[in-house]
Design a protein around this nucleic acid. Structure first.
Lengths: 206, 206, 206, 206
DNA sequence: CATGAATGAGCATTCATTCAT
DNA sequence: CATGAATGAATGCTCATTCAT
């Protein structure tokens, strides 16, 4: 009553910081849990158990497991977007862009990687739940490629298929990279870039 | 009827046929359900609800959801393997093999595709549940590639990465193909083959 | 058709023997299963699994698990009754009868004992399901004691309590005896007889 | 209220009381259900159905039927132990101890008795499910007897058999007593004590 | 009669979500 | 806001019993 009066006049004090901290704690725990158990197998209980918080508190921040997932993905998007933009801006041509983008992606992937993630063949019937980060970059990459084609920086190939090919390839090579010890971003980028750029020339034009 | 009293010596009567039919019904329902809901979200109850059978009957055939999944994968493998083998045998060189294998895979995929499958733009958090077929062919493809490298039919590139690249690319292009109406196997194969073969020459040697 | 015609004219042939054998097989399996798992925990499935027979066949012989249990108890009764009768007939007085009866009971118990029986403290929350044999002798013993009292061969004590005391004591001492290796019928009988007979004299008369 | 803001420092509010009440409700229901149906036949559902609570709530308090049973036994032991201890302390000699202990036991039994319990002439195959109380006192009694023997207060008889004899006798006489209307603790104690003490003198020495 | 697959009611248990404190 | 117990729908699975062969 006496000392706390500040709380009412400065609403951006302890209270706000505690709120942000709780939200972060949940996100952090969710990331770890998703990585360990896979998205579908994870439960809200698993997530809150990974924090110091009580179960009910979860619902003050997120309405469901999906919402946490999406917050995580948004997070990933927010953090990856500048990297991709830099790749585009710094690149001299499309080839350079692809190289830089792949390097950015594999770097990002390694940075985001949580140990304990189920790398590929783990739980019995294998389910690859794309990490939130993966999901986030998906749209970004696709837009970049389409834009390049529109601007005439890339040959007029089937943009949909090319996007899928890049994404699919990067996804699986990324997984393979993470399984290696240590993961070598340079090596993975070089491999993927060579494959895409070498193939690009041979692709049927639209 | 002909020689023995049927009951004891001819176990291929109605009973046997019913058993096979039930097993098939479960597998078929499981396939549909996995496609619709995704593997993790699917329940045993969902599967039996997709048949005319009673709940307990499920357990006369499979011990768990996993076991159905594996039966499905085995099935897929059993049916795809001859196609892959034919590709290998009929192929003049590695290039030819890649083309035939991709064509075989996309054909197979289209054939296996169950309508109602959530192809890509799917339930909120994206889950790339490797279809049983996908999983089954994984090992096949990898072995084929490694064999080609050993035999000197393909350049000595990173086999692990190449396999992942082919698989990842085929997976996502395959999904994209199935979303098109009608799915064009020829087109998808040509695209993927061009990308892989064009890139292959540029790949770093080991 | 040609040779089997005998079956129809001699209905006590193979058929009958097979039937008896099946019934026996079920009873034997049930006894073993009850001993191993306890009555309540045992299932009809457990019992038939212990035979060569098919599940449906069970119901040609017994309507339920209870019915098997009772058949087993009847069996026990049928086999124990002569022993008890002999004890009564050979005994000079009540004291002698008690000694002989206890000896007969512990002998019987040891003879009936199936290894693997849950001796006393076994499955977590302990449940002593009286063996069918136990149940069978219960009534026999009680009748004998009451008759002795009526005939003036035993003091006019509370027959109900005395019966319960004898039965309860014999039950638990019997269990303890079976836990010993080797079970010593003589020792157990001597102990129980001394206790009952020594106490009998001090018992309040009715 | 007095010193601190109640919420955090006074966890003895309504919540705590509700928790204790629920736990008790479950225990009480379990006791009634075990008595009515027997332990093995009872289901967790039966127990919760015997309360006002929802099914899931059971698992907030106990992990299984066994755990409830054990809590019940612990409870019984906790409540009976002082009575047995008092018997030991107040007793002048072993004879006195036996009398007091039996009296205590039969009193306790009557006090614990839940109406509706299937006392003896019970559901078809007789199952002597040691009541939690019974189980709990078993060790107590045995220790008391052994201690008495060690101290020379009782003859050096077979302690194992004597314990079993007392327990078995008390169990069945106790059941018989409860069947009487009204149950006469004094009468049952006198009977059992006379039998044991009279017999004790005649028992073979070790 | 023997067989053994089908049945479906029933049980233990988990989990997202609510809400009184 | 935080808490964490209560809720009850939903799930995996078992089992006694039936019945077509």
């Amino acid at each position: 009553m006496t000392q706390d009066s500040a709380a009412e006049t400065t609403p951006d004090g302890k209270r706000e910081r505690a709120k942000a901290a709780n939200r972060d704690a949940i996100l952090k725990a969710a990331k770890r849990v998703f990585a360990e158990l896979g998205y579908e197998a994870s439960t809200v209980r698993d997530i809150i158990r990974g924090t110091e918080l009580a179960s009910g508190t979860f619902y003050n921040y997120f309405r469901s497991k999906e919402e946490v997932y999406e917050a995580l993905a948004d997070d990933g998007a927010r953090r990856f977007r500048p990297m991709l933009r830099a790749a585009r801006e710094d690149a001299g041509d499309f080839e350079d862009f692809i190289r830089r983008a792949l390097f950015a992606y594999f770097s990002f992937l390694r940075g985001e990687h949580v140990d304990g993630a189920t790398p590929f063949t783990e739980r019995s019937p294998h389910v690859r739940s794309d990490t939130p980060e993966m999901k986030a970059v998906y749209q970004e990459v696709r837009a970049s490629i389409e834009e390049a084609i529109v601007r005439g920086m890339a040959p007029a190939v089937d943009a949909d298929y090319l996007t899928c090919a890049c994404i699919g390839m990067a996804t699986d090579i990324g997984e393979a990279m993470l399984r290696r010890d240590p993961p070598d971003v340079q090596e993975a980028s070089a491999f993927a870039a060579a494959l895409i750029l070498g193939g690009l020339a041979k692709l049927p034009r639209k």
